[in-house]
Design a protein around this nucleic acid. Sequence first.
DNA 1: CGCCATGTTTACGTTAACGTAAAGTGCTGA
DNA 2: TCAGCACTTTACGTTAACGTAAACATGGCG
Lengths: 151, 151
Amino acid sequence: MSKPRQEATPSASATTPLRHHRRTYSIGELSRLFEVTPRTIRFYEQEGLLAPERRGQTRIYHEKDRVRLKLTLRGKRLGFTLAEIREVIELYDAMPDGNTRQLQRMLEILSAKRAEMQARLEDIRLMQQELDEVESRCRSVLEQLDRHDVT
Amino acid sequence: MSKPRQEATPSASATTPLRHHRRTYSIGELSRLFEVTPRTIRFYEQEGLLAPERRGQTRIYHEKDRVRLKLTLRGKRLGFTLAEIREVIELYDAMPDGNTRQLQRMLEILSAKRAEMQARLEDIRLMQQELDEVESRCRSVLEQLDRHDVT
DNA sequence: CGCCATGTTTACGTTAACGTAAAGTGCTGA
DNA sequence: TCAGCACTTTACGTTAACGTAAACATGGCG
């Protein structure tokens, strides 16, 4: 019920130096940052959403990975599946060497996503309207109760 | 990928009379209206989201049920779980005979839902921003390709 | 009457998105 | 040296939200 919508605030400089703008993260740091489990992060990698560097056996995450994770979690909050999110991320990555057909295809997908977003916006608008109605009904009942108490 | 955001348009007056504003629906009608399977509708009933009348063994759905189903599907599109949706629906139903504590509790929940909606709105805004960026990058690459072709 | 569409219950199957547990690796400080 | 932590792989478990199949009821109609 109380999910973290943003990145957790880092606790100043703990043991890590962080000169100005950190370059790499361990899986633990990243998991604390976004308040997800390491398992989740590894799972996202397995699903092709992340591709961290490897120092020996250990995963090293860069800014790029952090951004991807952020996008992934945002997409999830909007109800997209990991597969859908991966689709967009893959497109984003394949951009520079994309041929014309690929790029046209991407514009189509973008247009579709945009339409989805518009639809979600409308859903939210309607949902807020419902909330308004329930609240006003609720308040009017409360008022009735008050009047009965006082009168 | 191509889910129906709205109710399917009814095919005029087919075999059913529908004098002015229909009162009841069969499970099949409802399933066609919203393009979900009967199984889904029965499942929602099992989960306490619908409570249709029974004529013998057969389910009869009224306007109220249709509205509930619509709200449920909208909630789903926004990424809410059936449990969360049921919570709101139950509150909505328990309104008239709610005591003060119940009503206060409902206002709290409404406030929370409202905050969720705000957060989702922000997510959508950011997501649209990303889409803009990807599209502009995409178009600029296309332009480069064009220039190379023409020049 | 028989058939077929549409309904019903019961129950096991499936997929996505992780959780959880076991068992091993590698550095680090007392 | 070794205890402890953070990391790793492997693999089975879990939950939500239905899908699918079997087996049966029922009302209309040619």
